[in-house]
Design a protein around this nucleic acid. Structure first.
Lengths: 332, 332
DNA sequence: GTGAAAGCGCTAACAA
DNA sequence: TTGTTAGCGCTTTCAC
């Protein structure tokens, strides 16, 4: 039988409230009694039940994590860092991969509410923001990572997308490229990336940007298709800025298949700096997101919010960095 | 305020036990009452509390997952499939990355016990099996994936490691290679892979196998180092069997850096068939693990065990498959 | 410094 | 068919 607070109390010859006090370091307990109780706890190998304690109004010590897909290396790294920071603070995390799919988002939200999670971290798209209303109504603290939900006022941590895209675009321009294409993912966080691309190109006086803008979904095959589409144009681009590494890998495959060489014929630059960018050949020049830091910061923000809800929410933009590898070169 | 069973009962003008009965489909309830209750539930947007229900002896509907590292693509894919199957069956999963580190294993185990998980899936190494004793004592069902703990009798799902290694080794032999090296990870599941390698090589009459056996940890850099080590030998191998894709990528980097070409000078074959094997250049020949199926099966096994503990535990070995891509070629 | 007792939201006898 | 009630393991007030 699993030991309870009663077994400990009996073993120690005290009342359960005394045991409770030593566990939680509340009230005043004599050093002697504390020792005896601690002794009993370790003898019985007692672990206080979070379930029971949660029922009395305390925390469940669990955080929900809604993420598009844990098997996507970018989110896996973010998740890892969220997990680490949460565990540091004594919280467990329940992971749910939504595929950015409305039905799953709804279903998992309901599962998580029933589990009485203390807080929620969202990286999923939530194109239908009203789904989150239950959460808001029940005052469950929420924080967003690597995603945007403009309808709601929520603490958020993301990379500075606009700046990242600026870094990528201006780097390609500085290499002499003018026919630069962008392959973006069709999610909100990619919008600033597209805007920065346009702005930077326009400022450089480049014309006819529109034909080189493609939006698609996050998958290697989609990157492949998008690149092929670009190569079917009369004037094919000499450089491509691909808004995440997964898509970039697909694009690289298409470029090679077309008999072109990277970076000699086509320069390519990714976004994220996941494992994939170092395992690709040639190694991918990319915009690095500080993934460890992003994960750590959202958890911090969420915990802060749990302790004391802020009226004014924060939006934290972390600085991306250009990592130059082998997939970019001066215009030939 | 979060709606409770009481608010629903009041709203519907019935007792809480009636509400409980309609929620759980127990006892007999008139169609009329059921409708009224359901109505009240949806009006209040009521979600029954798993916490409260767990306290009465029912399940917490959560499964613990101890995995070495969620940011490792192999485990991320396994985790994704475990997650999907669990959610299908109404369970949430709490994820813990242990880095195969004893202290973390111990800490997370204690966290999970306190959370009163219904079952535990273990992919972590647990070199110290006694850590799991608490779980066994408390009759918490356990299932193992992609790992082995010989000291304990536990339901297990793994790929057939011996056969996988046989497939890899005999394929390299069939290409005419004799100086074949193996880079293995220093965990239990890799032992059968090394055995099969030795056995197959011996049966083919190859001598001096020992100098070509390297054991290391799962990291790209380790693969890199191991391959360099092999190239420092007088007679360098003409083919390398690397026991996981992560290591294989590292080895590929070392080979290229040494100015050798893959597969012309050195053939290389991986194990796992993660994304990495398709994003690498040349694309990696590898032994595919049926990751989706492995995840699904462990969950099934765990749930079975939760419903009715078996005296004799099962060990399920799923068949691996040789995927021939571009990194292997006949001996030059 | 310590203990008795009420109550958290729910389930499951048992009564009605 | 529906309602009453006693717990589940814990926290927390309030007496002692």
């Amino acid at each position: 039988m699993k030991p309870t607070i009663y077994s400990v109390a009996e073993q120690a010859g005290v009342s359960i409230s005394t045991v409770s006090k030593v566990i939680n370091n509340t009230g005043r307990i004599s050093e002697r009694t504390r020792k005896i109780v601690l002794q009993a706890i370790s003898e019985l190998n007692y672990h206080p039940s979070v379930v029971a304690s949660a029922l009395t109004g305390k925390q469940t010590k669990t955080i929900g994590l809604l993420i598009p897909d844990i098997s996507n290396p970018f989110f896996a790294e973010i998740a890892r860092s969220i997990e680490d920071r949460s565990h540091e603070l004594g919280f467990n995390v329940m992971m749910c991969s939504t595929d950015n799919n409305k039905e799953k988002e709804e279903k998992y939200l309901s599962l998580l509410i029933r589990q009485q999670i203390d807080g929620l971290i969202v990286a999923s798209a939530f194109r239908c923001a009203s789904l989150l209303e239950d959460m808001v109504k029940q005052h469950i603290p929420i924080a967003l990572v690597a995603s945007e939900i403009p309808e709601l006022s929520i603490n958020t941590v993301t990379v500075d997308d606009y700046r990242g895209s600026y870094l990528a675009t201006s780097y390609l321009l500085s290499l002499g490229h003018r026919r630069i294409a962008i392959i973006a993912e069709n999610v909100r966080s990619n919008k600033p990336r597209v805007y920065a691309f346009r702005d930077t190109m326009e400022e450089a006086g480049v014309q006819g940007i529109d034909r080189y803008v493609i939006k698609t979904e996050a998958a290697i095959t989609k990157g492949y298709e998008s690149a092929r589409q670009l190569f079917s144009l009369k004037e094919r681009p000499t450089a491509i800025f691909v808004c995440n590494d997964l898509l970039a890998i697909g694009a690289m495959q298409a470029i090679k298949e077309a008999g072109l060489s990277i970076p000699h014929d086509v320069s390519i630059i990714g976004f994220d700096n996941t494992v994939l960018s170092t395992t690709a050949t040639p190694m991918l020049t990319t915009i690095a997101q500080p993934m460890k830091e992003i994960g750590t910061k959202v958890v911090n923000l969420l915990i802060q919010e749990m302790e004391e809800p802020k009226t004014y929410k924060e939006r934290l933009l972390l600085s991306p960095e250009l990592i130059i590898r082998e997939s970019t070169a001066p215009l030939h």
